[in-house]
Each structure stands twice: as C-alpha cells, then as structure tokens.
Design a protein around this nucleic acid. Structure first.
Lengths: 195, 195
DNA sequence: CGATGACAGAACACCGTGTTCGGCAAGGAA
DNA sequence: TTCCTTGCCGAACACGGTGTTCTGTCATCG
C-alpha cells in the first residue's frame, strides 16, 4: 500500500481530505458521495474502484491513525514496568489533539440515536445541577459529561448483553464506581453524598 | 392525543410495535419503511399522515417512556431532602429493565461510527487486561465498559467543544476522576496504580 | 519507448423515500 | 338508524442518491 502508484495515493488522499472537510462542514449524513467527488475532483468510477462506499472511505480516514494509536497503547501493556499511571489516558487525548481535524470529523458524526442522546443529556443535566449545587473543585461540565458517559456506556452494555445482572445489582455496581470519583471532585467530602 | 380516534391509536401503536420488533431483529438502518408498513399492515399514505419519517416514528416509541423517566428523575432534584444517593442511578436502570424491549431496540441501533467504536473497544480491552491482571473485586467487564465509556464521552465532549483545555490538562482531569474509582474496584489499594 | 492500468464521463438500473389522488369504510353525533 | 366527518387504503408517481457498466484517454513505471 505504501509503494503503490503515485496516482492512487493522490486520489485516495484527495477523497479522504474532501470527506473530512465536508463532514466538518455539514456532518456525515448530510454529505453525499457526489459532493465528495466534486470537491476531490475525482470521477465516480474512480471512487468505487477504491472504496466500497462512503462508510469505507470514512473508515479509511482513521485507519492510519488507528494503527498509530494501537501501537502507542500497546507499548504500555500490563507486565511492563509500572509506567506512569496517567500515560494511557494522555496517549488518547494527545492523539486526538495531534489529529484534531480527523477527530473533529469523527465526532461530527452524530450519535444518530435520539433516544440515547436524550438519556445522556438528561443524566448529564441532572449531574450538572447536583454538582454545581454541591460545589465542585473541578469543571462541572467535565464531571457531568464524564459520569453521564460512564452511566450510559454501562447501561448500553447491560442492555445489549441481555441484562446479565438484576437492575438493583447493576445500579449498585455503578454506584460503587461513581461515588468515590464524585467525592474526589467535590471541595470537601460532600455533605449529603449524591452520585 | 389521549382522547383521539380509536383508529388513530390503533395505527400508531401498530407502527411503533412493528418498528421495535423489526429493529430488534435486523437493526435500525437495515429496517425499511415498507417493512414496517407490511408488518403493521398499514398503508403507506397512513404512515406519512402520522409521522414525518422513520426517525420520527422511532422517537415516538420512546416519547412516553422519556416523559416517565423525566418525571421520575425530576423528583430528585437538588434542594430536596438528601435522598438515597443510589436512587438516581437505580431509577435509570430500573426504567430500562421495565421497558426492556424498547431499550433493546434503542441499543440495537449501532454506533454507526467505526472510529468511535474502535476507540471504545481499544480502551475497554486495555482496561480489561490491566484490571484482570491487578485483581478486581467486581466484574472486570463492568469496570472496563464503565471507564471506557467515561473516557470516550469526555473525549467526544472535548473535541466537539473545540478543545477547551490542553491535552495534558484534560488528561489530568480525567485521571483525577478515574483513579479513585478504579482503586475502589481493586482488592487492595492497587500496587502500581494504573488508570 | 511501449504496456499497463488508473482515470474520466456519461449513461444506466435500482432502491428507498415521500407525495398525490380518488374511492372506501369505520367512527362519532343526532 | 342516519348522516357526515375523517381516517384509511392502494396505486401511481417524481425524486434523489447509489453503485455499475462501457468506452476512450492519459499518466506512470519498467
């Protein structure tokens, strides 16, 4: 793939850049193949000679980056020297920051799921109110988004895995993880512990 | 909306149930309006007389439930008596469990975003290995999904909000929240704290 | 300097969407 | 019951985006 025809590389890069810029502008769903073709100045036939469809092109935009991130993360597998605890997290955020444009495009692709979006917003708002009320020592938005995302992810996992625990049980597990992190984010121990 | 024609209610419910069952079977994207029409035994014209498109129908499936959840959550706003800390979480999981079928359909709607899915899987796997290595006292899958979801949510928020903090800063914030929760999930304090 | 194959352009069939129309029948009120 | 309102049906249609096919041209690499 590296030593291919120069024309091929030119075409692929043109298509990828066109898609990324268009997605940033109008979002993924609202971007049509024809628009990508026009902006990249590439023929329709050529496009389908390279990619099965729009999804494949979109995925290819992240392929190199994925490989890069994968190796960076693999460098800190367990068993290796007790590396800096922050590093795995830092790697991800650093990677995103280095490749801002692509990540912008990735995140412009909406959740496409109004129900989950609603749930997320609902939980995040509730947390935001609770937290700003309780006096947090770190940005309230950050805390709210973080914990709402955690709750939603666990919920989705729980549902798609066919409810492997009872509702009370999974709620207790969730609470066990959320509570200490929330406490750590408040000025003092937190008066009436929320979660 | 409640005291409308009996035919209207019949039609709407038929369409909603048809969509939910089809989504559970083949997923949202792979379900076509015509299939919904066939299963609900409803005419094409009738469908568009009730809903603008497939998305609107899907949203309507969650409307009543959303209202229900909203009121349940509103009952525990801050300022009210220091309610049981676990309740807000329990409400969400309980709600999902009570309306299993709809939630199943909701969660069948794929992330539609291979890049984010990749990131999530990557982070979750890394966490899983770290955790099972360190000896966790709660289900490793639960912990991995939970923290991966939190990280991803924060990442998405950070990107879509145009990187309001530097990469190191946001990583530090993330670490501050993740560390205590992970520690709490390990048997002992955790030898070489990861995160 | 060839031979290869990447590319353009236009035409095409296909599928899913959302709209239009005339006619039918089920619902609610008198 | 009668009447009339209104939801519903079915078929047909235009539209837009997708992915394919064919023919000819030109850049690239050996």
């Amino acid at each position: 793939m590296a030593g291919t025809d120069r024309r091929v590389r030119r075409t692929r890069r043109a298509l990828q850049q066109a898609l990324v810029s268009l997605v940033i502008e109008r979002g993924y769903e609202r971007t049509t193949v024809q628009e990508v073709l026009d902006r990249a100045d590439v023929g329709r036939t050529t496009f389908y000679a390279h990619f099965r469809d729009k999804d494949a092109l979109f995925a290819s935009c992240f392929d190199d980056l994925a490989e890069e991130l994968r190796t960076e993360l693999a460098a800190m597998q367990p068993g290796l020297p007790p590396a800096d605890p922050v590093r795995p997290i830092g790697v991800v955020f650093g990677h995103a920051h280095r490749h801002r444009e692509v990540y912008r495009a990735i995140c412009r692709r909406p959740q496409a799921n109004p129900a989950l979006a609603f749930l997320h917003r609902q939980v995040a708002d509730l947390l935001r109110e609770h937290l700003s009320d309780a006096g947090a020592r770190m940005p309230v938005d950050v805390m709210a988004e973080y914990h709402a995302g955690a709750l939603l992810a666990l919920l989705i996992w729980w549902v798609t895995n066919d409810f492997p625990y009872g509702p009370d049980e999974i709620a207790r597990l969730c609470q066990t993880m959320m509570a200490p992190a929330v406490m750590a984010g408040l000025r003092d121990g937190g008066p009436h512990g929320l979660a």
